[in-house]
Amino acid sequence: MSAYRTGDPLDRRRFLTTTALHGATVIGATALGAVDADAAFAAPIRPLDPAVAESAFAEGRITAINDDVLAVAGSYGDHSRVRVTGATSVWKARATTAADIETGDGLYARGVPLPDGTLAADAVWVNIVNLHATIRGIEKTRLHLAHGQHEIVGNLMTEATSAAYGTASPTADLSRLTIGQSAQVLGAWRPSDGSVDLVRVAVAPGAGRRR
């Protein structure tokens, strides 16, 4: 049995690493945009390949999980069933697996509608929030945020929360965040306590100067 087929994830990763490093090297940049967590808020993707059906979206709260099918109650009273497969990417503050999805979670899914009425998900974003907030307090493990009239606790995740200062790339350096800054916050909402696990805190250009 090849390393690819073994159940050991380390063996599998080792095989995939070797494969990736033997791949073709492509050098250069392009102006094309992002498709990852931010893509959850983007317009539906129109595939270049005409054989591929146009992507469809589903959103709402997960009301039940039956094997690999998630029952989702939409925000506007609609209901949908989302099928999660081994090829579905699952985002819940980080790239994870379907095992982390729980009943009661919020969901945003992109995929292809199947004849049986389910949506075969290509990508699922769980509890994703992207909101504008003001930093009201900074502690070692969390930020206090104000979003409109709501106060939100933002949990800092070790090695996983990043900050983006102006147009610079996201960095692990959070020391330039200051109280009173306006920030665009990407994270995963925790239904249990209403707090948000912070993935990226983007502050405006010019912000984040060292004092």
């Binding site: 990043s162 692990a172 350096d173 993935v199």
Partner: peptide, 10 residues
């Protein structure tokens, strides 16, 4: 965190 040099996955 200012001393962290690891590049975030983002």
């Amino acid at each position: 965190t200012g001393a962290r040099t690891a590049v975030p996955i983002a």
